[in-house]
Amino acid sequence: MVSSPTPAAPALPLREDLRGEQPYGAPQLSVPVVLNVNENPYPVAPEIVADMADAVAAAAVGLNRYPDREFLDLRADLAAFLLRESGAELLPEQLWAANGSNEVMLHVLQAFGGPGRTALSFAPTYSMYPEYARDTLTDWVTGERRPAGSEDPFGVDPEHACSQIRHHRPSVVLLASPNNPTGTALPLSTVEAVLAEVAALPAGGVVVVDEAYGEFRREGVPSALQLLPQHPRLAVSRTMSKAFSLAGARLGYLAASREFVDALRIVRLPYHLSAVTQAVARTALRHSETLLARVDELRVRRDETVQWLRHNGFTVAESDANFVLFGEFDDRHAVWQGLLDRGVLIRETGPAGWLRVSIGTAEEMQSFRTALMEVVNEQ
């Protein structure tokens, strides 16, 4: 019996702007040394894990009910943490949280972007920003950061930024500080210049300073949180994925005016933050001092990595994050592959010819240094 050919599956009515697109995602490979996605290399301490387990067990009793939709207790805990960490005096209603800072940013673009509106940032910067814009049908444009060889490598020139704002009239400006993938922090004077230019637009706009790596900034580098009282159109986003060692918990948050946060409440999905996530995050905030205790160690190791790379002839961007961008390579993919062949996974990202390495444990960084020199010496 001759079987009939399987009919071809009909083409799905995918949005035209999504045809040919690939899902976002850095490689998740099983190798001995994983230094490609800026995770904290240190796991949560056993005693905190136990406390989280108790909190999750307590939350599980009520999982037949929807979670607290407004999660004001968590928002109050976040406000208390920012008061201790940065001296920012905020009401719980000025905090927002979601499943990672990715969802927080998506809420911002849903509320303030959309068809006929524009989001602006300065490249190179976080590769997810244009995807937030795409997914919300927001036009995406970029200005340029200063070149690597300038006096302010990968910084944002305020005059250029203001010119771009006047030209494109964005409804949303995204400023990563420290920037991913370069690690560059912005002076508050640059943020203030951007805020003033956006405020002067006929339709106004909002500015988001993305401080996902803010806890790793060097001594004396300020947070944009201190600008919030004077700027109701400013928001500062953070995450618990990095410094808190909670990448798997998926909790990001944002501080802004109450009016700004209320706009995000309109576009969020119902009950978007699970009771389990809320329980884990609140437990982590109770243990913030312990969870953040190794941030200083990672800062020191980052600075040591910068010095070692420069000593060995590499060009390195100054970093206020938990990663380092370095180069410049004629064939960066060959270097990346050579490291991977030796069991070390870093990230092939940023400007052409550059690579990014996350800061891991002392042993992981030694493996990285050994592998890198082997690869370079073979070329």
Results as ranks from 00 to 15, higher is better:
241 S>W: 03
204 G>R: 12
127 S>E: 14
120 L>H: 03
213 Y>W: 11
361 T>L: 06
308 W>K: 05
279 A>D: 05
211 E>Q: 06
220 G>W: 13
126 Y>A: 01
342 R>Q: 14
191 V>S: 01
99 N>Q: 11
367 S>R: 02
17 D>W: 08
358 S>Y: 01
332 R>Q: 11
216 F>C: 00
170 P>R: 12
156 V>H: 06
268 R>Q: 15
310 R>V: 09
80 A>N: 14
351 P>L: 03
193 A>V: 04
21 E>N: 11
145 R>V: 00
145 R>N: 02
150 S>M: 04
153 P>K: 04
50 A>R: 15
200 A>P: 05
19 R>M: 02
166 R>W: 00
48 I>C: 08
345 L>W: 03
174 L>T: 08
186 L>S: 04
75 R>N: 07
151 E>F: 13
113 G>H: 05
283 T>G: 09
264 L>I: 09
46 P>G: 06
117 R>D: 04
23 P>V: 04
94 Q>I: 07
348 E>G: 04
342 R>M: 05
375 V>W: 06
142 T>H: 01
115 P>E: 15
323 F>H: 06
266 I>K: 14
230 Q>V: 02
141 V>L: 07
149 G>P: 08
259 E>H: 09
201 L>C: 04
248 G>N: 13
11 A>D: 14
90 L>H: 04
28 Q>T: 13
329 F>G: 08
49 V>D: 11
299 R>W: 01
203 A>Q: 15
136 T>F: 05
15 R>F: 05
30 S>A: 14
103 E>V: 13
201 L>G: 06
101 S>Y: 14
366 Q>V: 09
121 S>V: 05
288 S>G: 03
134 R>F: 06
367 S>G: 08
179 N>L: 07
39 E>I: 06
90 L>Y: 10
46 P>T: 10
209 V>A: 04
156 V>R: 02
359 I>P: 00
300 V>W: 04
283 T>M: 09
244 F>T: 01
2 V>F: 12
369 R>K: 07
114 G>D: 08
54 D>E: 15
203 A>G: 09
156 V>G: 02
15 R>G: 03
314 F>H: 09
376 V>I: 15
148 A>E: 14
337 Q>R: 15
82 L>S: 07
121 S>Y: 12
184 T>N: 05
38 N>P: 02
357 V>E: 03
30 S>M: 12
192 E>Q: 15
108 V>T: 13
158 P>R: 07
34 V>M: 05
269 L>S: 14
310 R>A: 07
190 T>S: 11
2 V>Y: 10
6 T>Y: 13
205 G>V: 13
153 P>V: 00
199 A>R: 14
54 D>R: 15
340 L>Y: 12
130 P>S: 03
370 T>R: 09
149 G>E: 09
10 P>C: 12
